[in-house]
Every structure is written in C-alpha cells, then in structure tokens.
C-alpha cells in the first residue's frame, strides 16, 4: 500500500513553497510529494516549519511563493473552508476542539463538510465509546486524551481524502499516544492518505510508509522510514 499508480499525479505535492509570519520567513522553499494511500510522517526538530507547512497545505496560511498541488490541481488561493469541504482535514496542534461547546456540538461542527450528524455521531461513538457518555459535557472539561479523541473524531468520521495530523502526542501519556497511533494506522489501512507531523519521531516511524525530515524551513531528506531514522539524531541534536 505504499505508492500510488505512476500514471496518476500524487495526492499532494508542494513545489518550492515559501511562507512566513510578517517579515520572518519560516519556509524557505519546501518540496514534498505525498503519494496516494500513504501514511506519511513529516519529522524534524521544533522550529523546522512543520506546523507552518501543514497550515499552508490546509489553506490557513498563504504561501508567498511556490505551489500547493492537490491531486494535480493547484490550490494556492483556496481558503481553508473550501479545502475542508473538498475532503482535506487538518487536526491542528494542541486540541483541535471548541472548548466552550459540548461534545455533541463539536460533532455538529464536523457536519459542515456534508456528513449527516447521525453518521458522524454513530461513527465517533463506535470508535470512542467514552465520548458517548460525555455527549452533553463541555469539551474543555474533558481529559487531555478525550479531547484529542474528539479532535480526531472529525478526521475519522467525515471520510476525508487527506488527513493531516499535527502533534497528536503533545502533552499526552505515552500509552495513550501509542493507542492513538494504532488508530491512525488502522485508518490508513482503510485507504485514507495521512500526513502526520510529529516531534517524537520514533513513535511514527514504526507505522509510517514514507517520511520526510525538515530542518530550518527546508526538507533535508525524503524516503523510507529506515533512511530517515538514520538522519534523525544529527538533525535534532547536531551529533
């Protein structure tokens, strides 16, 4: 289930993408190819620009130069909500939930992409039975793990074509992180393409099909998990 067929364009391609905040340029020309049906790990030390890369892909942040190509179509100008309705789903770093809305209302927001609420609830509760008991509770009062489940529920229940996950593990107990990545692998096996951004590289290299290593706003290496593994500690600690 690694690469897509060669006659079709890759699901996601970045060509020389530059972006920044105000005067500070963070991405200095990022090139990235994510094939179809692939669990892709985007790794790198912090400050490398991983989160910014995801924001650019999802349309939250505008690239100052370069192209973002989704399934062969250039989508540079598209807004985040347009992309979301076309099947791109980003679960942002640090709890992608609305804390002052109840669990049910959070799920209601996921229906903006077109799935009926009954479907979203059924699929979410099937996967995370704990959330069913907390339907009426404010999402901000859930535990960290439950919040992350709720955030992921949107990605899992709305059938995205491309799922982007940013730092699932942030602030969670290792056992829970392992559980979440088990789920990610399951979803990938169903054929959803997934890009995972993760600081704890070894965690995801175990489940990824392909990986890329970002350092200082550029992609340093792209390839199979084993190739990337070797380059890691040099990039992180300068050994």
């Amino acid at each position: 289930m690694t690469a897509g067929r060669p006659d079709r364009p890759p699901l996601l391609e970045l060509r020389g993408v530059r972006a920044g905040y105000g005067e500070v340029e963070v991405l200095h020309g990022v090139d990235l190819v994510v094939p179809e049906r692939c669990l892709f790990a985007l790794l790198g030390p912090n400050g490398a620009g991983k989160t910014t890369t995801l924001s650019v892909i999802a349309g939250l942040h505008r690239a100052t130069d370069g192209d973002v190509v989704l399934a062969g179509r250039r989508v540079n100008g598209a807004t985040a909500d347009q992309l979301a309705r076309r099947g791109l789903c980003l679960v942002p770093e640090g709890r992608g939930i609305f804390p002052n809305l109840t669990v049910r209302e959070n799920l209601l927001m996921a229906t903006h992409t077109g799935s009926p609420i009954a479907d979203v609830e059924a699929r979410t509760f099937a996967r995370f039975p704990r959330l069913r008991d907390r339907r009426g509770q404010l999402a901000g009062t859930l535990s960290g793990g439950e919040q992350q489940m709720l955030a992921m529920a949107r990605g899992l229940a709305t059938d995205p074509a491309l799922l982007l996950l940013d730092e699932l593990s942030m602030g969670l107990a290792p056992i829970l992180v392992e559980e979440l990545y088990g789920l990610v692998a399951e979803v990938a096996a169903e054929g959803v393409s997934i890009v995972v951004v993760e600081q704890f590289a070894r965690m995801v290299l175990g489940v990824a099909d392909r990986a890329a290593l970002m350092v200082r706003g550029r992609v340093e290496a792209q390839g199979g998990p084993a190739e990337i593994e070797g380059a890691l500690s040099g990039a992180y600690l300068g050994q």
Partner: peptide
C-alpha cells in the same frame, strides 16, 4: 481558524 478547518462558511 478551527471552524474554517471544519469547513464552515
């Protein structure tokens, strides 16, 4: 931004 990511107009 999260609401945009949810696809809301």
């Amino acid at each position: 931004p999260l609401l945009l990511l949810n696809g809301a107009r």
